[in-house]
Design a protein around this nucleic acid. Structure first.
Lengths: 335, 335
DNA sequence: GTTTAGCACTCTCCTTTCAGGAGTGCTAAG
DNA sequence: CTTAGCACTCCTGAAAGGAGAGTGCTAAAC
C-alpha cells in the first residue's frame, strides 16, 4: 500500500461520494492531479481490487469502493472536516433557549444534526431507567390529579400526571413525597420499578398509600417514550441509491424500530464510531453506513447520537459535525 | 343515474380500491354479481365516463374513478364501516393508562389511527395559544430552576422548566404564582404572551420580578412544539401508487410541513370531512385523499385528526375508524 | 327498446435485437 | 516502470415486434 495507491483510493472514493457513479481510470486521471496516465491508474486500480479495497459492478464499469475500502479511507486517509464559523455558531446557539427538558434536548439535537449533515439522524436520550433517583415531589393540579416530578442523577427531570384519591391533599402529598424520597433515593429507576411491582418487598404494607400512587406511576410509565428522537428521515430520499421504494422502506423501518436504538447503544465506546455497510450485519441497512457518537454528563456516557446515510456518506463532514455537536451537548448538559 | 349505474360505479370503485388496476368490463361482470354481460357493463361505463365519474388512462385500458366519481361514491353510495368488536375494544383501551398530558394524547391518537387504517395519520392538538389560562404554579426544582405548571380552560396542563435568579425561594415563588394567576386568569395564552412582550402595558413596572420570569417563559416557549403528531408515515410506501420516490417525498414532505396542519384546521366543521385528490388544490397531494375529523372538549371543537392515503383510499373503513376514535377521544378528554 | 355476441381496432407492456459507448486488461514499445 | 494501442466485455437505450387486455361498434337475440 504505497503512497500512490492511497492517493488513487482517496480520489476514487471522493469522486464516488460526490457522483454515486462507478469511477473509471480516465476520470480519475483527468479530474485529480495524479500526474500519471489512465493506464497506470488502471494498474493501481487492479491492485487495489486484488487487495479488496475496490469492486467492479461488472467487467466494463468503473470501480466502486468496497466496505474494506471505505474502512481504510475512514481509518487511515480521511481526516474530520473542520466546520466553518457559521456552522460552529449554529451549533453553539442551538441549545441556548431552553433548559433541562430531556425530550427537548434530544429533539433539538436530532434536528440540528440532520440539518447539518443532510442525512437522517437519531438521538437516544440518557436511559432514565438506569439513572438513580435523587428527588421526587408531587404538585397538586386538580382535586384528583397530581403532577409527579422526578429528578435523576443525570440531572434530568421527568414529569408525569397521576390520578389520585381525593383525600390526598397538599400536606399529605408533601409528606408522601418526603417518605418516598427518603426511602428510595439512590435507587436506579429500573430497580425502583421492580421493587414497587414486587409484593414481597413489603412496601405495600409499610406505605400503603404511597405504594398505591407509585403503582400508578409504574404502570402508566412507558420507559421508552420520548427517549428517542428521529429527525430528517426524508433526507434519505435525496440520494440516488434510494430510488427503490423497498430499500427506503427497509432503511426507514430500521430507524423506527428498536433495533436502531440497540445498535446505537452497542457502540458504547467513547467518541465517534463508524459502521460501514455489512459491518453492522443487519440486512436492512446493508447499503448504509452509520456514524455514532456518545455524549456525556459529568464524565460518564449517557446517550448516543447516530447518523445514517448511504455507504458513500460524506464521512469527513459527518464525523466533524457529530463530534462538534456531541461535545457541545455534553457541555450544555454539564452546566 | 339509475340504480344499475350506481351499482356499476360502486363495484368498479371497490375493485379499484382493492387492486389499484384499471377495471375492465369483464372483471366487473365476473367478480360482482351484476347479472348482465360485459357488453352491457361497457355501455354503462361509457355513460359513466360521459358523466365524468370515470376516466380511461388510455384507449384500451379499463376505467379508473375520477375525483368526481369518488366524490359521488363517498357522498351517495358508500356507508361508514362499522368496526368489529376487537377494533372497538382497542380504541377504548388506548386511552386508559395515562391522563391529561397533551402530547401523550395526540401521540397515542395518531398511532392508533395509523395502525388501524394502515395509512399515515396526523393529529393536531388543541391550540394552547387560544385557550384561556385558568391556573399557574411554580415548583422549585433546584437552586436556580423552577418548573412552571400552567393549566388552561381546555383542561390541559403544560409544563416548562425555567431558570430563575437564586433569590426566588419557595415562598417567593408561591406569591408570584398567585399574583400571576390573579392578574391574568381568563386571558388567552396568545394574548397573554403579547401582553408580556409589550412594554407599554406597564406589567414590567408593576411586577418586575414576575415579569422577568414571564419573559423567560414566553421567549423559551415554542408554541407549536408538541402540538402535532405524525404516525405511520411509512405506511404510504405500501401502496403501489407511491412506487415513485419523488412522489413519496412530496407527500411525506407535505405531512411534515405547516401546510398539513393548516389544511386540517381549514376543515373546521364538526364531524368527518373528506377531501379527494385535486379538491385540496395542493400540488403535492394531487394524488391523495384526506379524511379529517374534529374532536371536542366540553362541546367545542379543539383539535383535528387527519388521515392521508392514496385517492383509492378505503373510505368507508377510514371514516368509520376516524369517527370512532374522535368520539372516544372527545369522551376521555371531557372526563 | 334493451341486452348480448362477435369482431376489428387500439394501446400498453414485455421481450428481443442491435448499435453505441464506456471502461477494462493485455501487450508491446518507450 | 509507464504508457499507447487495441481487442474485448458488458451495460444502456432505442427500435421493432408480438401478445394481451380492453374497448367501441354492429347486428342479432330477447
Amino acid at each position: 500500500m504505497d503512497a500512490r495507491k492511497r492517493q488513487v483510493l482517496e480520489a476514487l472514493i471522493d469522486d464516488y461520494i460526490a457522483t454515486a457513479e462507478p469511477v473509471g481510470s480516465r476520470t480519475l486521471a483527468k479530474k485529480y492531479g495524479l500526474g500519471v496516465s489512465p493506464a497506470t491508474i488502471r494498474n493501481e486500480m487492479a491492485d487495489l481490487e486484488d487487495l479488496g479495497f475496490l469492486e467492479q459492478p461488472h467487467t466494463s464499469a468503473g470501480r466502486v469502493p468496497s466496505d474494506k475500502g471505505y474502512r481504510y479511507y475512514v481509518d487511515e486517509i480521511m481526516r474530520p472536516l473542520v466546520l466553518d464559523l457559521a456552522e460552529r455558531q449554529r451549533i453553539r446557539q442551538a441549545y441556548q433557549v431552553r433548559v433541562r427538558e430531556l425530550h427537548w434536548f434530544i429533539h433539538q439535537t436530532a434536528r440540528l444534526v440532520s440539518e447539518l449533515t443532510l442525512y437522517p439522524s437519531l438521538v437516544v436520550a440518557p436511559p432514565v431507567e438506569q439513572a438513580a433517583l435523587t428527588d421526587l415531589s408531587f404538585v397538586p393540579l386538580g382535586q384528583d390529579t397530581v403532577l409527579m416530578v422526578l429528578k435523576t442523577s443525570t440531572g434530568m427531570v421527568e414529569n408525569q400526571t397521576l390520578l389520585v384519591p381525593e383525600e390526598f391533599d397538599s400536606d399529605k402529598l408533601k409528606s408522601l413525597a418526603e417518605d418516598f424520597t427518603q426511602e428510595f433515593r439512590g435507587l436506579a429507576i429500573h430497580d425502583l420499578k421492580n421493587r414497587i411491582l414486587d409484593p414481597l418487598q413489603g412496601d405495600v404494607k409499610r406505605y400503603p398509600e404511597l405504594w398505591q400512587l407509585a403503582l400508578k406511576w409504574v404502570t402508566g410509565h412507558d420507559g421508552d417514550e420520548d427517549k428517542v428522537s428521529l429527525a430528517g428521515p426524508l433526507n434519505i430520499l435525496n440520494y440516488p441509491e434510494f430510488r427503490d421504494v423497498d430499500k427506503v422502506r427497509r432503511v426507514l423501518g430500521f430507524l423506527e424500530k428498536e433495533t436502531a436504538v440497540e445498535l446505537a447503544s452497542r457502540y458504547y465506546a467513547e467518541g465517534v464510531q463508524v459502521v460501514i455497510g455489512a459491518e453492522s450485519s443487519l440486512d436492512d441497512i446493508q447499503d448504509c453506513s452509520l456514524v455514532t457518537a456518545t455524549y456525556r454528563v459529568g464524565g460518564s456516557v449517557v446517550g448516543h447520537l447516530m447518523v445514517l446515510g448511504p455507504r458513500r456518506m460524506h464521512y469527513n463532514r459527518v464525523i466533524g459535525i457529530v463530534e462538534a455537536v456531541s461535545d457541545e451537548l455534553s457541555r450544555v448538559l454539564h452546566g
